[in-house]
Computed example of a mutant assay.
Amino acid sequence: MTTFESVVQPKSKLWLAAIKPPMYTVAIIPITVGSAVAYAQTQAIDLNILGTFLLSAIAIIAWLNISNDVYDSDTGIDINKAESVVNLTGNRNLMFWLGNLFLGLGITGIATISWWQQDLTVVEIVLLSCFLGYSYQGPPFRLGYQGLGEIICTICFGPLALSAAYYSQTQSWSIANLLASLVIGISTSIILFCSHFHQVKDDLAAGKLSPIVRMGTKIGAVVLKWSTASIYALSAVGVASGLFPVATLLIFLSLPLAIKLTNFVSEYHDRPERVRTCKYLAVRLHFASGLLLAVGFYL
């Protein structure tokens, strides 16, 4: 986005884009699915723990979004990103400490769950996830600049998030939950993957070797198709193996969204001004597929 575009665009829209309301589904869906698997296997759920976990996860995602803008401002990669909270406020330090406040609130909520259970496992898992989340953009790691962001995203929002959610309800582990975590982890990383298509030039200028920079947008569009297909393949494997209830095939109702996303990227992968909206299609796919999977387990 050019400086001129950022001037003429209403400030309210820029703030809405900076806050990223749809992105908070990446906090809600893993906790919801992990808890749904627990319910399917135990026929019980602690709503106090579920509610506390959801609010804590939302706070942690707020920290992640704000801190990513803060650390990107340090490298200059967001110089043309009008919806960066740092660019909007002009106060990097304020955003840094606001992000840390959200992190503190989130960890406090998770620690409360561990205190209720007299078991540190959940807070340990979440702390590991937060560390990996920091390593994505934070110094001295900045692993996202080496193209490792999607791997980190898959681990944090897949196995770690669902394991924490499942354990918070059962204080045990589950193979079915692990398989479900791969579905959610991949669908979450697809959002991040799609966010790279329109910013190849800015990434190159900042020395960020995102997967799209490394492989190019054309190959990236093909990889997106296979990654998206794997969500449904893994779900089918779960049902065929008996790990998932048959009702989880409801996830296939989200298939039209998957087709729309992959076709859109295939057509506009090399046109930054058009393909930039594909990440919002990816968010819709993530939310719909995750919600349908959770409903399948609850049923």
Rank of each mutant, 00 (worst) to 15 (best):
268 Y>K: 11
195 S>L: 00
139 P>E: 10
115 W>Q: 10
236 A>I: 12
58 I>Y: 07
41 Q>M: 15
280 Y>I: 12
138 G>W: 05
253 L>E: 01
206 A>V: 02
157 F>I: 04
127 L>G: 07
173 W>M: 11
140 P>R: 12
133 G>W: 05
247 A>W: 01
156 C>R: 03
226 W>K: 13
190 I>G: 02
150 E>G: 03
281 L>G: 14
168 S>T: 02
149 G>V: 04
23 M>L: 13
241 S>N: 08
144 G>W: 05
211 P>A: 04
3 T>S: 12
230 S>Q: 12
55 L>F: 13
285 L>P: 03
6 S>A: 14
108 T>K: 09
23 M>C: 11
276 R>H: 15
293 L>K: 06
161 A>M: 07
97 W>C: 05
182 L>A: 13
86 V>S: 04
189 S>C: 11
54 L>G: 06
254 S>H: 02
252 F>M: 02
228 T>F: 03
170 T>P: 00
163 S>L: 09
119 D>H: 04
188 T>L: 02
144 G>Q: 05
232 Y>N: 08
274 R>H: 12
225 K>P: 03
269 H>R: 08
35 S>G: 11
210 S>N: 01
275 V>W: 07
135 S>M: 11
29 I>S: 05
249 L>C: 01
247 A>I: 06
288 A>W: 12
288 A>P: 05
5 E>I: 04
87 N>W: 01
44 A>H: 13
296 G>K: 00
232 Y>I: 06
290 G>V: 08
11 K>T: 14
296 G>V: 03
166 Y>K: 03
205 A>H: 11
160 L>Y: 03
122 V>H: 02
65 N>G: 05
130 C>P: 00
80 N>Q: 10
137 Q>P: 09
211 P>Y: 00
234 L>W: 13
246 V>E: 10
247 A>N: 00
180 A>K: 04
